[in-house]
Design a protein around this nucleic acid. Structure first.
Lengths: 109, 109
DNA sequence: TACTAGTAATTAGTAATACTGAATACTGGT
DNA sequence: ACCAGTATTCAGTATTACTAATTACTAGTA
């Protein structure tokens, strides 16, 4: 899918929150999961800006662990504020997507 | 709904395209329709930047008509390129919303 | 040894978009 | 004379994802 970047604004962070909520994970793995999900053009740098923002906003706990596949990994888990943010994200998503779909399905005049 | 502005990026232009496709309309009326749809905080200035972009990208035809309710209105209609853009928007929306909902509904591990 | 590929984090700079907060202008009513 | 509603316009701002790269660790291989 080409040029969806503008439509990803706001939702990509929510996706990252959701992925982290499934269990402790790190940037590179999050990137892979997003690509598997279908957002094939997402790269590490993009996810990094999001995880950095989550750190800055105190939504995650961090633990650095060594890896036998490469350099050490920075594992993230959601704290209480992060889970609140995730809940708020889904609420916003449900709101917006219902409105958009309402518009989409309206009978043309 | 508070602070949904980031999630509106990319989709608001699509909504405006869809509204114009329903029939000749103008900025102020588009704003009202978006507010009726539920995007209550959208203001004229925001819609203006979008209609200006549509003009600049040659996606609309323009006709200025006098009004008996105030200053003259700038009516927009989609041209062929605009209709293509609208189709592309819905394709992207369907793609992204299906992926997000897939993520949302996945069984937590 | 030198090299390549895969894993993993990091960063400065850019582009695109919606929002802020206003100015201008036209009409009708009090 | 004033105000509310209608209607367009615009300079500046904030936020976000992307670009394009650097650094570093491990394992395989020529």
């Amino acid at each position: 899918m080409e040029n969806i970047t503008e439509m990803l604004k706001g939702v990509l962070e929510g996706c990252v929150l959701e992925i982290i909520s499934r269990g402790e994970t790190y940037g590179y793995e999050i990137t892979q999961q997003l690509r598997e999900l279908g957002f094939t053009d997402v790269v590490e740098g993009t996810v990094y800006t999001i995880t950095m923002r989550l750190e800055k906003n105190n939504l995650v706990e961090i633990e650095k662990k060594p890896s036998n596949m490469g350099p050490p990994r920075k594992f993230y888990t959601l704290n209480a504020a992060g889970q609140e943010q995730l809940k708020a994200f889904w609420k916003k998503w449900d709101f917006i997507s219902s409105k958009i779909n309402e518009l989409k399905s309206k009978i043309k005049s």
